[in-house]
């Protein structure tokens, strides 16, 4: 029988799944709050996302974790989706495609971690 290499897909599929779950739970709500409710002053007060408030949010341990998870896991989810969509439209999954998609997610993860830690506690 031919020997087959174990796929490393579970790592990326896991991040994709986690990001998909988060996106489904929080994505529409975040779009509504940041894109509609706050700018138009609907439901939420107009100053709900002012700089001092958002700074305090991102300096809080839980707020920091939330922002990091939402940026990083959303990006891993999107990267995986784009990577596989490229494959489906005939652009085949070479190392270059992987680097472009997962690489962007990795850079996004590192940058958001560095910036969030830089803001301090």
């Amino acid at each position: 029988m031919k020997t087959r290499k174990r796929s490393n897909a579970p790592v990326f599929w896991g991040l994709f799944g986690a990001g998909g779950m988060l996106a489904a739970l929080f994505g529409p709500m975040l779009v509504f709050i940041t894109g509609v409710a706050v700018p138009l002053g609907l439901i939420l007060p107009a100053g709900a996302m002012d700089y001092p408030k958002m700074l305090a949010f991102s300096q809080n341990f839980i707020g920091k974790g939330f922002i990091f998870a939402v940026i990083s896991l959303f990006m891993w989810h999107a990267a995986h989706r784009i990577f596989h969509s490229l494959h489906e439209i005939g652009i085949h999954a070479g190392f270059g495609c992987k680097l472009l998609t997962y690489g962007v997610a990795l850079v996004g993860t590192v940058v958001s971690a560095v910036v969030l830690l830089g803001i301090g506690f």
Partner: peptide
Amino acid sequence: MELLASEDGVYNCS
């Protein structure tokens, strides 16, 4: 599992 978890396995499915 060796086969299912391999590069020819389940993760080819989208």
